[in-house]
Design a protein around this nucleic acid. Structure first.
Lengths: 146, 146
DNA sequence: GTACAAATTAAAGTTCACTTGAAGTCAAGG
DNA sequence: CCTTGACTTCAAGTGAACTTTAATTTGTAC
């Protein structure tokens, strides 16, 4: 079967840049075999793997977390729908949580706009104790509250 | 009035690290006067300004966008509640949009978990054309879809 | 058989939002 | 006066997720 995809084909099918795909490979998120000349060739299941990575990113996972998740897939066989379902179903609570958080922010903001306050002394919106402590340097995802 | 705050005091009241406050100053987000010895002193309205920055970040704005927003405040007088309300009320649509996006993701994901698919060929979840084109390098905020 | 697009590598660069470190100065209590 | 903790500046470092560059090789279509 000449079912194998070049990096360009995989890129087009997934919407992920070739440079990103190579980066994913160095990060251990996807794997490739090589053509006689040394170019990458991907099996069709890599489409699903890349898809998983991108959806997981939308959910807010870091590549590190995604790698961990992917590591729990079986290595001896192509993952089944059930395998993927098991991984992605763990996102539900996370999504629910993120949604709830944004709604809370929106509604409090509405109240604060109504009362005209936006200050630490009067407004619960910004109580530092309400928010997660920051950990480590670098940018933090806006919705991340652990 | 000895109403002026040191950087340490402002840091404690806002929960923002002194290094971050200095950084905000170099970025033009806040301003300070100086003590005779050259240390920073902040007026009490800076509390509100810092608060605004943090809430705006939660909403998903970059510091660049926040600076632009702050630039529309009057320079000749201390901003009133109405001034702050005008700025923050523009977040409503953005928040609504973000919430809607997450809900869409959650519900589609639910459907895809149900049908067992998670693949480009069958699942609308990942249609690249559905998603915003990426622009520029660097990390992107998970919910940012412009 | 040759042109030309698409692939290869390694190393360095980018963005954002800060933090850390070094080497020193200021402010307040005793 | 002296100590101690809070403050100062400037430059460089951090982490995530890639992209860019450069110099070279491979694959394919005519």
């Amino acid at each position: 079967m000449e079912n194998e995809l070049t990096i360009g084909a995989l890129s087009e099918r997934t919407g992920v840049a070739p440079s990103a795909l190579r980066f994913y490979e160095t990060e251990g998120l996807i794997h490739s075999s090589r053509s006689p000349g040394g170019q990458r060739r991907y099996g069709r299941d890599t489409l699903r793997r890349v898809s998983f990575v991108r959806v997981a990113q939308q959910v807010g996972l870091t590549l590190d977390e995604i790698r961990t998740a992917l590591a729990s897939l079986p290595e001896n066989r192509t993952p089944t729908a059930k395998d993927w379902e098991r991984l992605s179903s763990s996102w539900r609570p996370r999504l629910d949580h993120q949604i709830a958080m944004l709604e809370r922010l929106r509604d409090r903001l509405h109240g604060c706009i109504g009362c005209g306050c936006l200050s630490l002394s009067f407004c619960k919106l910004l109580n530092p104790d309400d928010r997660a402590a920051q950990r480590g340097p670098g940018p933090r995802y806006v919705l991340d509250d652990d």
